[in-house]
Design a protein around this nucleic acid. Structure first.
Length: 513
RNA sequence: GGGCCGGUAGCUCAGCUGGUAGAGCAACGGACUUUUAAUCCGUAGGUCGAGGGUUCGAGCCCCUCCCGGCUCACCA
């Protein structure tokens, strides 16, 4: 892109020189606007209904600022639309109002994508659109690269906005998210909703008396989930560090330290495949509460979710990829083994490992070699039960082997007190009565070490310091993890995690252009 | 990693059994003082993802590679 600018970019650069000749600064320092676009429109409507417009039907003068998204020249006048964070407003340039010089500058210097400030009285055009009649205008920032702005029209029958041409290349939209956002208000809307979700979560947690904390991203021993980590290296420490795969173990150390309720919202990193529901870095909410068990945490999750949909969406009924989902408590609660028994028509507890494996093979579930009983049950569950869990459903009591950080079930020691919440066939939350017996924790870590030896790269490492913390005494504690990206997908009806992450990971693009 | 599909002008796309690349929008010049995908006349714009091969001739056929989408696997 060094020499061979395309035609559009060349002419825009030439306009820069023209501006210099005319003494116009292409990149301004600031602009005083009086109204956002929608505020200005609203102001005019109020003046209109209050009957305070002047004889020509003009309202108060305003100044607005935004990006020029459309432009129609008509000789001695021109129309365009400015878009700011609030929306768009039409602006109207007339030669007799602006004067020959200023009007000529509009025609000669301005391009789609430029940031403009426009000042003038409001009025309503013959076609009924509230518009700023420019008395002065100012270039705030010259756009030197053409934005893929599609032309839009409003369907006269349905009122829907139809975009022609536009910016469709999915790869380009992720790589140049700034351009995607600039031309797609609906994409900006997704990320506004994401922000409202996070705000609503903080509101809820803070109101419930949870303390927001930050724990290390760089960790000498990783843990808290089953996943492969990213490695990095600290130069002066001469040691390998891991990017965290979960916050869990540090947050429970804080409960040991005497904080009774803590939460953290932060990035986790897992060195695994990338697909519609996985991005290597993603955002988790984890919270821990002393003296609570997983039943208490189920209630908390239910209340949290209801609060979030109330605050972020304003409705408890949502549509996800065509399916209607009702976030209305109480959510269904089913034990994992019951759900499996229904789906398999056999008692999974009484089945031998061979029978389970046989069943899994018949379903063509791959990668069964290193799978033990627990893993087999998990795979069968994923294949047979999970897809049907559309409405919010808690699945309870997971096999011990899958849950090295969860307390054994008080009435069945082959299970743990753990639940996951499923919505729209996707796992949304994972929680348990936290294992607080340091001896048991050591045994579980050692079992995990055994799995590692069998080739399970995702099995836990033994975290000696964590066991030491437990030895000081962890009160009974309930803990929850919720993937915020997937929650956002659900609440914004997005099919891909990339559509709720501003800058999702992509392969390196070729340099140039 | 496997399978399928795709990468052509700034954007969205077309391009037949191989014959030297097109449209709309955007851009540029001109007309037009209330337009709504404004309209009308004219002009310019391309390393057809990259590299190699076959051929008199490749956007098109063959091989390798890069990037993306979907999907399967992996991933609670």
């Amino acid at each position: 892109m060094t020499e061979d600018l395309n035609q559009v970019m060349r002419t825009r650069r030439e306009k820069l020189e023209l501006m210099e000749d005319r003494g116009i600064r292409p990149f301004a320092y600031r602009y005083s606007r009086t109204h956002q676009a929608v505020e200005a429109v609203e102001l005019f409507r109020q003046e209109e209904s209050a009957g305070t417009l002047d004889a020509e039907g003009h309202g108060s003068p305003v100044s607005v600022a935004g990006r020029l998204m459309s432009f129609r020249g008509h000789g001695k006048s021109a129309f365009g639309h400015l878009e700011d964070a609030s929306g768009t407003i039409q602006v109207y340039f007339r030669r007799d109002l602006l004067g020959q010089e200023s009007f000529q500058n509009v025609l000669d210097l301005v391009d789609l994508g430029d940031w403009l400030g426009v000042e003038g009285e409001l009025f309503r055009t013959r076609t009924g659109e509230v518009t700023v009649r420019a008395s002065t205008w100012e270039l705030l920032s010259k756009s030197l690269r053409p934005l893929p702005i599609g032309k839009t029209e409003t369907d006269p029958e349905t009122g829907e906005r139809i975009t022609h041409s536009g910016f469709g290349d999915i790869e380009a939209r992720y790589r140049r998210r700034y351009a995607d956002l600039a031309v797609h208000p609906e994409v900006r809307e997704v990320f506004k909703t994401r922000s409202r979700i996070v705000t609503a979560i903080r509101e809820f947690m803070d109101d419930e008396g949870f303390l927001e904390v930050e724990t290390p991203v760089l960790q000498p021993v990783y843990g808290g989930a089953a996943a492969r980590p990213f490695l990095t290296r600290h130069n002066t420490l001469h040691r390998t560090l891991f990017l965290r795969i979960a916050d869990e173990l540090y947050l429970k150390r804080l409960i040991v330290g005497g904080f009774e309720k803590v939460y953290e919202i932060g990035k986790d990193f897992r060195n695994e495949g990338i697909d519609r529901v996985h991005n290597p870095e993603f955002t988790m909410l984890e919270f821990y509460q002393a003296f609570a068990d997983y039943q208490d945490m189920m209630d908390q999750v239910e209340r949290l979710l209801v609060h979030v949909v109330d605050r972020a969406l304003g409705t408890r009924t949502l549509t996800y990829q065509g399916a209607e989902i009702r976030v209305e408590p109480p959510f269904r609660r089913i034990r994992l083994l019951e759900a499996l028994e229904d789906a398999m028509d056999m008692d999974p507890l009484r089945a031998t490992e061979e029978e389970l494996k046989e069943r899994a093979y018949r379903l063509r579930l791959p990668d069964l070699e290193v799978a033990g009983r627990g893993k087999l049950l998990d795979k069968l569950f994923e294949a047979l039960v999970q897809p049907a869990l559309q409405q919010p459903t808690f699945i309870l009591d997971y096999p011990r082997e899958l849950s090295p950080l969860a307390k054994l079930h008080r009435s069945n020691p082959s299970l743990t007190e753990r639940f996951e919440l499923f919505v729209a066939g996707q796992e949304l939350a994972n929680a348990f009565s936290e294992l607080n017996d340091p001896m048991d924790q050591r045994r579980r870590f050692e079992e995990q070490a055994g799995l590692r030896a069998r080739g399970d790269e995702e099995a836990h490492q033994v975290d000696e310091d964590y066991i030491r913390a437990l030895e000081y005494g962890l009160p009974p504690t309930g803990g929850v993890g919720i993937g915020l990206d997937r929650l956002t997908m659900l609440l914004t009806d997005q099919a891909s995690i990339r559509d709720v992450i501003l800058f999702p990971i992509l392969r390196t693009e070729e340099q140039g252009q």
